[in-house]
């Protein structure tokens, strides 16, 4: 299992290289998921190709890796995280095993959810990752509850709550932030703003000055950062997490990034200008970090090594997932409920 905590005294270059490693691993994972899903996603109600390895709606976080990497660098294994339908990066950065994650995407019995959830519901409670969610904004109240629990139990754990720019227009956003504020809960809200909600440009659907302003309206300290600059995310998250651990209550990080892929992997996203995508690709978070590493004097060969190791790790994950067994049909009846178990009809 990858180690994700960083020694406090590591040099800026080494720390950045660690962040880069997390991003490279997420990128390799997303590329592999996209590749193995070809033909597997149902478009407009048609049936997914039975031979594709990854099936169903696949929401990729390609190009958004810096948000997951920069925030999760400051979480301990015992901290919690809630995610969205676009949750592979968060899950990986929180410390989940990539082979078990890939098995889940392949729907295998050895997946993190034993094949029951797939990409959209990936979760790994063993590292505090409490679940990706198919319902927009549904993770927010759950994160708040986990933070409330940590506070009541005095466990010292904090919660990172990831959601998209589209989620801030749902009621649970308002209710969750308010709750976290009045109970002074240890939660870091992270709005991963990739500018789109499915086919809709979110800006046109959002009143006022946006996510951070809404948080400030409830006296929750909020900061907007360049979400493609992993150092910016890292610094902001470091300070916010420190304040949360010191009992300062909820904090709000608004990370500006861009959804370079379609909403789901098969969405050609014809509703936006290609020029917009091309411009966004110019600030690719991995390239930005690599350039910065170069400026800090890190040898290009070391970066290439990290890239190669990430690809090799994901190749292994793919091989493990390909060979992994399917869930038995009988498993469809397990983990439903204890009371009344066996009374399927």
């Amino acid at each position: 299992m990858p180690v994700i905590t960083f020694p406090v005294n590591s040099s800026p270059a080494e720390h950045l290289l660690d962040l880069y490693r997390t991003m490279a691993r997420i990128r390799a994972f997303e590329n592999a998921a996209e590749e193995t899903s070809r033909g597997g996603v149902a478009v407009f109600g048609s049936t997914a190709d039975a031979v594709a390895l990854v099936r169903g709606p696949l929401h990729l976080s390609t190009g958004q890796e810096a948000v997951a990497a920069g925030v999760c660098a400051h979480l301990e294994r015992g901290d919690y995280l809630t995610s969205t339908h676009r949750g592979h990066g968060h899950t990986l950065a929180k410390g989940a095993d990539t082979a078990a994650m890939m098995c889940e995407l392949f729907g295998r019995a050895t997946g993190t959810n034993h094949g029951k959830g797939g990409s959209m519901h990936i979760a790994d409670f063993s590292v505090g990752m409490l679940g990706a969610n198919g319902v927009v904004a549904a993770g927010i109240p759950i994160a708040v509850g986990a933070a409330h629990s940590a506070k009541i139990r005095g466990s010292g754990a904090i919660v990172a709550c990831f959601f998209g720019d589209g989620a801030i227009n749902r009621g649970p956003f308002l209710e969750g932030l308010n709750w976290a504020k009045i109970f002074n809960l240890p939660v870091l809200f992270v709005c991963e703003d990739n500018r789109y909600s499915a086919t809709t440009a979110t800006d046109a659907m959002t009143g006022g000055a946006g996510a951070a302003a809404r948080a400030r309206g409830m006296d929750i300290p909020a900061e907007t950062v360049d979400g493609n600059d992993v150092r910016a995310v890292d610094h902001a998250a470091r300070d916010m997490v420190a304040r949360i651990r010191a009992g300062g209550g909820p904090q709000f990080l608004h990370a500006l990034t861009y959804r370079v892929k379609g909403h789901v992997s098969v969405d050609p996203a014809t509703y936006r200008e290609q020029g917009e995508v091309d411009r966004a690709l110019e600030s690719d978070p991995l390239q930005l970090a690599a350039a910065r590493l170069d400026a800090l004097g890190v040898d290009a060969a070391r970066i290439a090594e990290v890239d190669a190791a990430a690809r090799a790790e994901i190749e292994t994950a793919l091989a493990v997932a390909r060979a992994a067994p399917w869930p038995q049909a009988a498993a469809a009846y397990t983990d439903v409920q204890d009371t009344g178990a066996g009374q399927w009809h």
Binding site: G115, G118, P327, A329, V336
Partner: peptide
């Protein structure tokens, strides 16, 4: 005839049961 009282699982082997 209806589905068993289970949520619909992701893996094909599970989905088929529903």
């Amino acid at each position: 005839v209806g589905a068993p009282r289970i949520p619909v699982g992701y893996a094909r082997t599970l989905e088929d049961v529903a």
